[in-house]
């Protein structure tokens, strides 16, 4: 892992990988969503509203995947002091929050015709909203620490503590009676007909590639920021020295 601790080596790989990830992610997501919108038959009960599944479910998975990535990166930062871990965690926060917002919005749009309500305070919906607020808190905290030039260790602890919400989201529909349905896909079993499952899995692949591409692009941007900052500081020092 520490092979990538050298930002130069990481940047070389990241520069090469960003575009293919973004382009393939975009193409695969578009194909899967178009397939879901036009080729898939309507559901027996939900009718046409089933099509929102192909955006809602991958977004939900990635919103939880995003926080898991933050938690793992935070662990790597706290324990192994990996120099890129804090940057990776910061880079994953904004796309993670975006997918959480997409998940909440599409779920709400689906809920109105299906359940008869935009929003209820059941376990799944509430814990998902908490995840969105955790993302906002993490983004605010980590970017303010970076702006002040302080250690990101507090943000890493926040990232680890916030991870407790992930199993709660996952189990919320099993532990508590909720309006949201129980999981359709559990360990190797699916209650989703293959005709819906395939576009769903392909959309998930596309969204994940996009997520990876955005994280790499943001990591490069943060590294470039740090370099520019360091260069400015060096210039300022030199100017001071030449004045003295």
């Amino acid at each position: 892992m520490h092979g990538f601790a050298n930002p130069a080596r990481f940047l070389k790989i990241a520069r090469w990988l960003t575009m293919p990830l973004l382009v393939s992610g975009l193409v695969i997501s578009m194909c899967a969503v178009l397939w879901g919108l036009t080729q898939v038959p309507p559901d027996r009960l939900m009718g046409e509203t089933v099509r929102i599944l192909f955006v809602h479910v991958p977004a939900a998975w990635l919103s939880m995947g995003g926080w898991s990535a933050i938690a793992i990166a935070s662990l790597a930062e706290l324990v192994w002091r990996h120099p890129l871990a804090a940057i990776a965690a910061r880079a994953a926060a904004v796309p993670g929050a975006t997918f959480t917002a997409i998940c909440l919005a599409t779920g709400s749009i689906w809920g109105r015709p299906t359940w008869g309500t935009w929003w209820v305070w059941d376990g799944r919906l509430t814990s998902m909203l908490v995840l969105l607020f955790l993302y906002f808190g993490y983004i605010a905290l980590s970017s303010s620490l970076a702006r002040e030039g302080q250690s990101s260790r507090i943000a890493a602890i926040f990232g680890l503590v916030g991870a407790i919400n992930i199993p709660i989201i996952n189990r919320s529909v099993v532990w508590w009676n909720s309006l949201h349905q129980p999981p359709s896909i559990t360990m190797g079993q699916s209650a989703i007909d293959p005709v819906f499952l395939w576009p769903l899995l392909i959309a998930t692949l596309g969204f994940s590639l996009l997520f990876g591409g955005v994280v790499l692009a943001r990591m490069r941007a943060i590294l470039a920021d740090i370099q520019a900052e360091a260069r400015l500081r060096r210039k300022a020092l030199q100017a001071e020295e030449s004045l003295a």
Partner: peptide, 17 residues
């Protein structure tokens, strides 16, 4: 006063109904 429909975890196209 208010009814909410609960959807189950099964997704199935109409032909198979």
């Amino acid at each position: 006063d208010n009814l909410l429909a609960k959807h189950d975890e099964n997704y199935m196209p109409r032909e198979l109904e």
